[in-house]
Design a protein around this nucleic acid. Structure first.
Lengths: 242, 242
DNA sequence: ATTTGACCGAATAGTCTCATCCAGTCAAAC
DNA sequence: GTTTGACTGGATGAGACTATTCGGTCAAAT
């Protein structure tokens, strides 16, 4: 009865509010887990009314999907900002970024404590065509420059990288605290293992190095761009179909 | 009053019976899963009375522990029989053997469908000292012969191998059938990745190769022997403490 | 001495009822 | 047009009780 309801309609303010809500959701989901974080909690934490949240997202799940998408964007931008110049740096960057982001880690490890039921769906993501082709382009360039072995199918390279990343992260999470290597060391081990697995570790020609670095950045740019695009859709109030 | 109840006491017959019971348990657990396999089922399948099972194992869990121990023995003997001559062959052999044995796979992947509650304990296994020292000896020899890099702690080598094995197997299991590489190929990828990660892939001197092969077999012998010993304890009617 | 299977009790599964929670809606306030 | 929060109803959980299952025992049979 006190506050007027009309200062807005400004799409910038709307975006800001969307992010405030996501901030609130992130904090609560990390503290209490997905299953125990209610929309009412999020609304209170974000300082908006519950109905407002439904102006942005049609369902609870859409809200959390947006949260994860935002997290992915932040992660990819962080990786990109480090300007990796080789697949090795790229993988190291990804590993480091994943280790540093609890939500991403939980998502990747299928952590039921944090993500509850949400973690069980998550194979919906049939990778966007744009991403596949960007990845293929990237590998193509790497092969041309002779920095990865060409006796293997692209799909196999993907399997190798995924498996190495996943294996180290998971094993790391399972290990009892005392025996665990520090995160930075783990990151090195991952980058090193994946790099050796991919490569003819021939140091690449001077000129090739530039092409590789450029391809790496291009690839990251594409990935980040796609991620941002998906996020943008998730902030407007778009819908996933059932 | 016709048949005496005394033909037995022959420890060989007892052993045979233990194995028959384990065979029965293996078949049932693979068909219906751990949670749904009852002692009565096992007894019927094995053609013995329920009480007889309790002459061999004090609890249901002890029976299944014995089953897994036996599986491990069989697997290690299979790997050993292939006479791997390098860490690469060893890891490939392990991967292949794991892929071929549903119970081992289920155990490794924590497959709740098959192993139910059992899969949640399984961190009881604080590796036997004998195994650790055998492993250290093995790595020591490899380092001496220059086939693995010596700029890394032993524990890290272990982490690397575990992570690679685990990562590939798990990713493999998650992937949708059509996209999955065939088991043989996967085995190659695993062996290759782990080998590159461990190694100075310098081909090792002629003389060194023999020493490496010998060390590999020695290591496997020790592991198999320890496994057999633990199994033997599990067949007698020994007890684990709570 | 060995083996058996009927038997026991603890744990689990099933059923019904009542209370609570919470995602999502919408009429009213601004 | 925008925001709100009381409200709804479907779902989920708590509680109380019964039925069934199954690990483990032991007296009897051989």
């Amino acid at each position: 009865m006190v506050k007027a309801g009309r200062p807005a309609q400004d799409p910038v303010r709307q975006q800001e509010r969307a992010h405030r809500i996501l901030d609130a959701a992130a904090e609560l989901i990390l503290r209490w887990g997905y299953d125990k974080t209610t929309i009412d909690d999020v609304a209170k934490q974000a300082g908006v009314a519950k109905g407002t949240i439904y102006l942005h997202w049609k369902t609870r799940d859409a809200l959390f999907a947006a949260l994860l998408r935002r997290e992915r964007v932040l992660m990819m931008e962080e990786v990109r900002a480090a300007a990796p110049a080789s697949p090795r740096d790229l993988i190291g960057g990804l590993a480091g970024a994943l280790l540093r982001r609890p939500l991403m880690r939980a998502l990747m490890l299928g952590d039921a404590e944090v993500l509850g039921k949400l973690s069980k769906q998550k194979q919906e993501s049939a990778t966007t065509p744009a991403l596949s082709s960007a990845f293929e382009d990237y590998l193509g360039t790497l092969a041309e420059q002779g920095v990865i072995r060409s006796d293997r199918a692209l799909a196999e390279h993907l399997t190798v990288v995924s498996s190495v990343l996943y294996g180290f992260l998971f094993t790391h999470a399972l290990l009892p605290e005392p025996a665990r290597a520090p995160d930075d060391r783990l990151r090195e081990l991952i980058a090193d293992t994946a790099d050796r697995a991919l490569g003819t570790s021939e140091p690449a020609l001077r000129a090739g190095a530039r092409a590789v670095a450029q391809a790496t950045l291009d690839y990251l740019d594409t990935v980040a761009e796609v991620a941002r695009h998906k996020l943008a859709l998730s902030l407007g109030s778009e819908e996933r179909n059932p």
